[in-house]
Amino acid sequence: MTILLTGADGYLGWPTTLRIADRTDDRVVLVDNLARRRWVEEVGSTSATPIATMDERLEAAREVHGLANLSFVEGDLSEKSFVDELLAVHEPETIVHAAAQPSAPYSQINGERANYTQHNNMQATRNLLWGLEEHDMTDTHFVETTTTGVYGAPEFPIPEGGATMENGGERDEVPFPAMAGSWYHLTKSHDAANMRLAHTQFGIPISDVRTAITYGTETPETAADPRLATRFDFDYYFGVVAHRFAAQAIAGYPMTVYGKGEQRKPFIALEDAVEGLAQLALADPADRPDDLTVYNQVTRAISIVEIAETIADVGDEFDLDVDVEHFENPRDEDETHKMEIENDRYADLIGEQSVTFAEGMRDVLGTLTDYEDVIAAHEDRFLPGVLDDWDGETATAED
């Protein structure tokens, strides 16, 4: 059996690769074009944690964890000829698709980057889905990390994938309407629709894993050796809000909350996100879903002000004098939105939440104190007002 994991060089993809490979003797084929490294360099930033090359990572995985079942293929999934060769050679029984340009702010910079984001993300997914059909591999379990951002911020509880619509006295279950707020998030809305169509037309079993904002710096597998570290972005474009706030705290800047900051966002720890993807990838063939299943990969919703206050409290343990400052909100948004999001299927998959937000921030601050010089050298990348009015939230499906 072969498991194919795309976006294997990314923040979520790399630790997921190690978790899956450690639990199976099957071949695990890693795929990436290493573009995430270029995108972050392009916006003038870097990962706070040093990132080894893929060759160094694979060597460390063999030496430290004894993982001899890993192999790496570098290539661009938006090129159909590459995807066709990839599927023909490796014939995967499972694909975990975590490759994408994952930053909403990056997709909003200008039309060129909006076009690039949509072409890159949606073309890659279409190539994989059509490739499975054209290579007679429609029994392959297709798992994709999309994003909870496809839901937007409705005023009613968000279901796990679908909604009930009533009109003229008739009722039916329909996909949740795409309410994405960025050119990036809209790519995942289109991916969700295309996966549904591929399941309907081709019969491909699909798990649409809608990943929340992910926090944390390591898993047990990545913590075993510095060469196995996953990346940690803290800049405005690629760093999620919790990671940016933590970097501000390390650099001695107050954490900046726009308006009341009581609006809640969905979050999940890196460990819990990795575990869910590993469970889906390694499911016994007899137990795999043969339909399309949506999982809300989230453990809880957290307000922006709670994020800042939690980091400030945890910062005391590291002798950080952290302030929380409120600024006038430049965006037209509900500053008290109480997001409610169902996650029953995902909770059943991973069991109880393993890492609380406070524990995750303790992990983050503990790591970042070792790389204070890197953050200080790039502090202009996360200061408020330097770039534009986006809040820096990104999804975590990474290339």
Rank of each mutant, 00 (worst) to 15 (best):
T2A: 10
A8T: 07
A8N: 07
W14Q: 00
T16E: 04
A21H: 05
A21L: 11
R23K: 15
R27A: 07
V31Y: 03
D32E: 04
N33S: 11
V40C: 05
E41D: 13
S45H: 05
S45R: 01
T46N: 03
P50T: 09
L58C: 04
E59A: 15
A60K: 09
R62M: 08
V64P: 00
L67V: 13
L67Q: 11
L70H: 06
V73L: 12
G75C: 06
D76I: 03
F82Y: 13
L87F: 09
L87A: 07
V89T: 09
P92D: 06
E93G: 15
V96I: 04
S103K: 00
Y106K: 00
G111E: 12
E112S: 14
N120L: 13
G131L: 01
D139W: 03
H141T: 05
V143K: 02
V143S: 05
T145H: 06
V150I: 10
P157F: 03
E160N: 04
A163R: 14
T164Y: 14
E170S: 15
V174N: 02
P175I: 03
P177T: 12
S182Q: 11
Y184Q: 13
D191A: 12
R196Q: 10
R196S: 14
A198H: 09
I206C: 05
D208P: 04
T211A: 12
A212G: 15
T217V: 11
E221D: 03
T222R: 00
A223R: 12
A223I: 13
H243A: 05
A247N: 00
Q248P: 04
A249R: 02
G252W: 06
P254W: 10
M255K: 07
T256F: 09
G259L: 02
G261Q: 01
E262F: 11
F267T: 07
G276S: 02
A278W: 00
Q279L: 04
D284K: 01
D287Q: 02
D287W: 03
R288S: 00
Y295Q: 09
N296V: 10
I302H: 01
A308G: 05
E317A: 14
D319P: 14
F327A: 13
F327Y: 15
E328S: 08
D332C: 06
D332F: 07
E335W: 08
K338T: 09
M339A: 01
R345Y: 08
R362D: 08
D363M: 05
L365N: 05
T367P: 15
L368Y: 07
Y371F: 10
I375R: 04
A377L: 09
P384L: 10
L387N: 15
L387Y: 14
G392I: 11
D399M: 12
